[in-house]
Each structure stands twice: as structure tokens, then as C-alpha cells.
């Protein structure tokens, strides 16, 4: 994706060049978006896309840099969502310790990260399709466990009445603050992944993806690197889980079901796994389709339309939307060589 940092030969670049023009434009557009968008488009489309973009990003980190495709990202997010419900306040009369948000949130994210590392620790013994299978098994087992456990997960109905905190005089679930909160955390995660991918750890992880045997021979601890990647991806998924539970005001097994797990994979695949911006593009397309397909073709066949669009995207460009951009770009560049008016 060419929104990545533009590289040129000079070593002394100013901050604008370092950031990349694409990033600046995208950033400004996203910050100004609330000026033109209705509340519905801010939260139900904007906020929701950013949340699922973060989930896709946590998968992209594993799959794109580590070569590990996980179907358990929504499970990890679900753990932090349930943790918020259990540690904070809910109105389901089960648990609800009433911790303030600044205590509950770090705990929830930590719980998600640790859970993610555990899932990683189990699944790094496998490769390729087996990683998908084992993470799918974990996601399904967690879903059914949450569905049938009443002491901790409160069964099918889950937890309701979870409120986003209000501080600094701002109710953070109001449309604009919530959008900016999602945007802030999404940008933070995005930048962290982008930075991390070029750090020593990121490079090592990508080398392990390409040739684990050689890396092991060079003396790298392959398993430790992979599990650490799972931990990092757990932090991002955990943050997304916190936003998700504040967004919905509730969490139930339906939130972490197999459908949702597959949604995250679809988001990452149709967005593209080569650059961290991919999952966000994918999330936007998926959320728009899921929200508006029913208006286009009616209630009977709208899921068919959603499926068709995804198929077409993957058929036209196996690299997802990112790959599509990669194909269009040369044509645009060609055009720009022509003398201007």
C-alpha cells in the first residue's frame, strides 16, 4: 500500500516526509469526518469499522508478519469484554465488582494479552491449516463454554447495562467522543504495528515466518518470538474488546461466536495482509455491506450479496483491497507522466 512511508534517498527528512503524505491526508480526513457525518455514521459505521479494523489488525500482525492465521482473535477480544463486564458494573445482577474504568481496563487488556499468549503457546506447535483448526477449536469451545456457564459468563443472555466511563466532563459513549476514542486507539495500534514491523523484533518475526529452520539454526528462539507476537496481538485485540463492549453496552456469547470469528478473518483477507492499513479497509467494506446489503436486495438474500461481494474481491485480487490498489497504482502513475494542462 502506497500510504506507507515514502522512501527516498535523502537521510535527513523532515517529519512530514517521514510520516508520508498519504498518512497525513488520511489522518486529516478521519479527524474531520465528524463534521460531516451523522451520529449513526460516526459510531455504527465509523466506530464499529475502527473496532473491527483493530481486530483485523491483531490478526494481520500474526498472519502477515508471523505467518500464523488465527480464528481466535474475537475470543481474545471477548475475554477483555467479559472482563470489563465482570470487573466493572453491569445490570445483570451477576458479579460486577464495580471497579473504576482505569483499573478495569488495564486488567481486561492484560487478561486478553495473557489469554492470547496462551492460545499462541498452544498453537505455535502447529503450522498452516492446523493453526487455523486449533484456534477455531479454541474459539468454538470458548463460545459454547460462555453459552452454558452461568457462574462467570451468565449464559446465553450474557451481560447487559455496561456503560462507557464519563470523565473530564465527557461521556465517552456519546457519538463524537466515542468515535475519537476509537480513532485514537486505532491510530495508536496502527502506528505501533507499523513501527514494530521494522523493529528488530518485527524483522526477526518476518524472518521466522519465511524460514523458521534457518532462524533456529542461527540461534533465535523461534517459539518465544512467536508467543510474544501473540501477546502483542492480544493487547490490540483486548483494546478492541474494551471498545466493543462499550459500544454495544452488552456482551453475550453471540458477540464471540464462530460467525464473528470468521468475520474477522474475512476482514483481514479482503482488506489485505501485507500492510496494517489493509484490515481497516476490509472492516469498512464489511461493515458497510453488513449494514446496508439488506436495503439493496431485501431480507431474503442479503447474505448472498455480501458473500458475492467478498468472493469478487478475492477473485479479482487475491491480495484483497490492498492488492487491488497495487494494480491500479501503476496506471495512475502512468497518467501522471503525461504533461499537465
Amino acid at each position: 500500500m502506497s500510504l506507507a512511508i515514502a522512501t527516498d534517498g535523502t537521510t535527513q527528512r523532515n517529519w512530514l516526509e517521514k510520516l508520508g503524505a498519504g498518512h497525513v491526508i488520511l489522518g486529516v480526513a478521519l479527524v474531520l469526518y465528524p463534521l460531516v457525518a451523522s451520529d449513526f455514521f460516526l459510531t455504527q459505521i465509523g466506530g464499529y469499522s475502527l473496532i473491527f479494523g483493530m481486530l483485523g489488525l491483531s490478526l494481520m500482525l500474526l498472519a502477515g508478519y508471523g505467518g500464523m492465521v488465527s480464528l481466535a482473535q474475537i475470543t481474545v477480544a471477548g475475554i477483555s469484554a467479559y472482563a470489563i463486564a465482570i470487573l466493572g458494573n453491569n445490570n445483570s445482577n451477576i458479579l460486577g465488582f464495580g471497579w473504576p474504568w482505569w483499573l478495569a481496563v488495564p486488567f481486561a487488556v492484560l487478561a486478553a494479552a495473557v489469554a492470547s499468549a496462551l492460545i499462541g503457546w498452544i498453537s505455535v506447535r502447529t503450522e498452516g491449516i492446523y493453526t487455523i483448526m486449533i484456534t477455531l477449536a479454541i474459539a468454538t469451545a470458548t463460545y459454547y463454554f460462555a453459552q452454558q456457564n452461568y457462574a462467570i459468563f451468565n449464559g446465553h443472555s450474557g451481560y447487559a447495562g455496561i456503560r462507557a466511563p464519563a470523565f473530564w466532563g465527557i461521556g465517552w459513549r456519546d457519538a463524537k467522543p466515542f468515535y475519537y476514542l476509537c480513532l485514537g486507539l486505532a491510530v495508536l495500534s496502527y502506528a505501533a504495528v507499523l513501527y514494530g514491523s521494522r523493529s528488530t523484533f518485527g524483522m526477526t518475526l518476518q524472518a521466522i515466518r519465511d524460514n523458521p529452520r534457518r532462524m533456529r539454526a542461527l540461534g533465535y528462539h523461534v517459539t518465544a518470538h512467536k508467543v510474544f507476537a501473540w501477546l502483542l496481538s492480544g493487547v490490540i485485540a483486548g483494546l478492541a474488546g474494551v471498545l466493543l463492549v462499550w459500544f454495544n453496552g452488552r456482551v453475550s456469547p453471540g458477540t464471540i461466536g464462530v460467525d464473528a470469528a470468521i468475520d474477522v478473518l474475512i476482514i483481514a483477507v479482503i482488506g489485505g495482509l501485507r500492510h496494517p492499513i489493509g484490515p481497516f479497509l476490509g472492516a469498512l467494506v464489511v461493515v458497510l455491506m453488513q449494514t446496508f446489503a439488506i436495503d439493496i436486495v431485501g431480507a431474503e438474500r442479503f447474505n448472498t450479496l455480501i458473500g458475492m461481494v467478498f468472493l469478487i474481491i478475492v477473485f479479482v485480487s487475491p491480495d484483497g483491497i490492498l492488492g487491488l490498489w497495487g494494480r491500479i497504482k501503476p496506471h495512475l502513475a502512468q497518467e501522471s507522466l503525461r504533461p499537465g494542462p
Binding site: G158, N248, R250, V251, G254, D259, I294, F302
Partner: peptide, 14 residues
Amino acid sequence: VKGSSDASPDSAVR
């Protein structure tokens, strides 16, 4: 105007 859910409370609210 039709809206669709999948019997889960989340999808109904959405």
C-alpha cells in the same frame, strides 16, 4: 423498512 437479526441480543440491538 426491514432489519435482520440472528436471534442473538447483540444483533437485534444493532
